[in-house]
Each structure stands twice: as C-alpha cells, then as structure tokens.
C-alpha cells in the first residue's frame, strides 16, 4: 500500500486491497446484525424492563431488511428511488436522524453554560473570546457593533476573522493537527513493526 501511494502504475494494488477490505466489511455487517438479534432477543425473551423498545428495534430492522433485500420493484433494485425502502428511509429514518441532531442545540447550550464560567483568568479570556466570536459573527452582532457610537472605523468582523479565528484559533488547531499527524505516523509504524499489538488483545 505504501509503495503504490508513490509509484503511479501500481495504484491498482491499492484498489485491490481496498476491495478486499470491502468484502470483509460486508461479512462483518452480518455479524453486526446477529449481535443485534442476540442482545435484544435475550432482553425480549427475559422481558427485562423496557423490552418493548427492543422489540420495536428488531421489528424495524427486520421490516427494513425485507424491503431492502427482497421487495423488488417492477424495474430496478429494491433500494432505488420510489421503492418502499426509499420511503422508509426518507420518511422515517431521515426525520428521526434530524430530530436527534437538532437536540445538539440544547447540549451546546448546557455545555457552554458550564464551560464559560469565569473561574480563573484563563476561563475569563475564554469567556470574552467566545462572547466576541458568537455575537459578532452573525449579522445582528455586526449591526449592533456599527450602531455603537464609539467604534469608529474598527471592523470587528475582520478582527475576529483575521486575529481570533485566523490567528489564535488556527494556530492552536494546527499545533494539535501537527502533533496528531506525527503521532499517527508513529503508531502506524509501531503497528507495522509489530511493537504495538495491544489492539489484538495481547502484548506479544
């Protein structure tokens, strides 16, 4: 894989190994489904508390599987646009995902509430910076800024973009990314050399 990355005509090697991985992945999906049936089936049989939810999960899984694998339309595949599987995806699955995602707004609010408490000098700097970024990166903040009589020609948006986001924030992020990249090469090398084997469940 390393050689094919640098040697142009060998790129087929990369594609070949990727296709091996995809084949393994496909079989592993079956294992995943079996795991789901095992875990939730046991709970339904034992009728543990909330076993109804487990039942809903397994019924949903089975119905979607049947529609996705076996119910062929007149023309095309079971997963094509306009099929029952497509309807389930668009009208049940996607709204559920969107609903879960939208909950993030409330989580951000509660996390911000805890994070932005001026308990120390550093926390105060964080609080002030966050306040500036959150307020003045939206049109309303810009409007408020320009309505202040004493701001003159000072462009707060440019200050936030160029200094806070493009300067301090970008520098911090890049430092983390640089360190992570070096760490990535290191752990890859250790795995290749067989120094790091604990992900296989053993030390040697």
């Amino acid at each position: 894989m390393i050689i094919q990355f640098y040697i142009y005509p060998l790129d087929w090697l990369g594609e070949l190994f990727n296709s091996f991985y995809n084949i393994v992945l496909t079989f592993a999906f079956v294992l995943g489904a079996i795991s789901l049936f095992q875990v939730h089936g046991k709970k339904i049989i034992a009728q543990t508390s909330g076993w109804g939810y487990n039942l809903v999960l397994l019924v949903s899984l089975t119905v979607t599987l049947i529609f996705g694998l076996f119910v062929f339309p007149e023309k095309g595949q079971p997963v094509d646009a306009g099929t029952a599987f497509d309807w389930i995806f668009n009208n049940i699955f996607t709204p559920l995902c969107s609903t879960t995602y939208s909950l993030l707004a409330f989580y951000i609010a509660s996390a911000s509430f805890r994070a932005f408490r001026a308990r120390s000098a550093q926390a105060t700097v964080l609080l002030v910076t966050a306040f500036l970024v959150m307020l003045f990166r939206v049109p309303l903040g810009e409007y408020i800024w320009h309505s202040l009589p004493w701001v003159g020609q000072f462009d707060i948006t440019a200050f936030i973009d160029d200094w806070i986001m493009g300067g301090f924030n970008a520098a911090g992020q890049r430092a983390i990314m640089l360190g992570a990249s070096v760490g990535l090469v290191s752990i890859s090398l250790k795995i290749l050399l067989g120094i790091e084997v604990s992900y296989l469940g053993g030390n040697d």
Partner: peptide, 25 residues
Amino acid sequence: MGEELYAASAYLSGEPLQIGSLKGQ
C-alpha cells in the same frame, strides 16, 4: 488531545520500545 491518544498505549504499557517511539515523536 490529538497525539496523546496515540501515545496512550505506549504510556500505559511502559515498555521501553514503546517509550522509544514516544521520544522519537
């Protein structure tokens, strides 16, 4: 943060070879 995740295994094992890789990083 970042590299600390990758360093964790070496740090926890305390093996000289793993520690050597951390120093290299």
